[in-house]
Design a protein around this nucleic acid. Structure first.
Lengths: 210, 210
DNA sequence: CTAACGTTTGTCCAATCGGTCAAAAAATTG
DNA sequence: CAATTTTTTGACCGATTGGACAAACGTTAG
């Protein structure tokens, strides 16, 4: 090996790096970056600390790799929002996709939330760059819908925020949601209930007048 | 002094404890419990670490005191929601109050978010007890409104979640909101815009049909 | 002034932190 | 098989962590 950190050349390296990233996702998403230790991740990954550091030389490298992957997944649903179909159908399926992500990738959502809560020190450039550009673009799409009368007039930026907030809430605040709903209402069905409610809220809330 | 930790008897004790809590709120809300150090809090409070530990014997004690205070403030707006006035007016002012709290007490909101994100280890009992009871009670109020036809039929639990999510978003994800809105739209006016949007969303989204 | 009490600090400690390193063990290659 | 390379581990390091403690300092009442 000529380099310093193995670059996933061998089969073992690819596999072990995945195991580590999976374990790190679990640990980082519940404890945040500073609150997580390499030992915790190593234990969750079923290996010794020096062994883990053989695959990722620094704690930051793990977090960075995780973040890079996350952001790709995270922006995908918004990227799909486009002018092709019926506006309200597009919005409804965007909400549905975001809610499915909250259901299927809650740890990713919490990892992201942790980063933002801490002031986004590691992804600020991406927020002001790639994310802002993408949102600006989609805001124009939504403005077009509103001009054409297919969607009620409203602030498109805050519409996007509201969709993000309501859907990610079911991942980030999952513990609270389940505690409040109780054992009976708090089962897996809560996502169906949430989907129905949010569809109603946004569809009726954005139905064009007259 | 007969006890171990001073109990705010003297003037200095009351003052210094407040200074510490103020500093700890700042530190805990951005770094989480595990990610914060006593040294950080002591420095933010302008005193030495042993001096801080004279007023709060353990790091956990500071966090616990902060949490207890927070929860009282936090539940107040929901407690005020009652049957007296017009339903939609009640809902609108609840949303407004929650948004004002996100604007005026963002650190408290982030402290709470951090705790929930980490699985709410310290306040789980309160979530399943006091909070659930309160929400159950308010759900009945909202159900009454829906039965009387003043508010559209919808899931009251998820309505409450949606209000929590959309309003607290402006505190917890403030960095992202400001980054996406950019320098011009991201000023203090963003709360006015958010208030207008959310009022429209919930009022129209919950307007009874026919 | 002095005794008693409240406050502050410097020093210290054991535990834990992120990370290194050399050597052992395992896998791969010829 | 032996030689080489990759993987794993135990021991270790300096820095930081939460916290203890006694001594020093400040304040106040008699």
């Amino acid at each position: 090996m000529e380099g310093s950190t193995p670059r996933g050349r061998t089969r073992i390296q690819k596999e072990k790096r995945e195991v580590i990233l999976e374990a790190a996702l679990e640990v980082f998403s519940t404890n945040g970056f500073r609150g997580s230790t390499i030992d915790q991740i190593a234990e969750a990954a079923g290996m010794s600390k020096p062994n883990l550091l053989y695959y990722f030389r620094r704690k930051e490298d793990i977090h960075e790799t995780l973040m890079h992957r996350l952001l790709e997944t995270w922006l995908a649903p918004l990227k799909e929002l486009d002018n092709i179909g019926d506006p309200m159908t597009e919005l409804r399926s965007y909400i549905r996709r975001k809610l499915e992500m909250a259901r299927d990738f809650p740890r990713e959502s919490r990892l992201f939330a942790n980063e933002i809560l801490q002031g986004a020190p590691r992804i600020m450039a991406m927020l002001e760059g790639e994310l802002k550009t993408l949102v600006d673009e989609k805001v124009e799409v939504i403005k077009g819908w509103m001009r054409s009368g297919k969607v009620a007039q409203a602030d498109p930026w805050h519409l996007i925020f509201a969709i993000w907030a309501t859907t990610q809430h079911y991942a980030d605040f999952d513990v609270q949601v389940r505690a409040v709903l109780g054992p009976d209402r708090g089962g897996e069905g809560r996502f169906e209930d949430a989907a129905r409610f949010l569809e109603q809220l946004f569809v009726e809330g954005l139905r064009p007048k007259g």
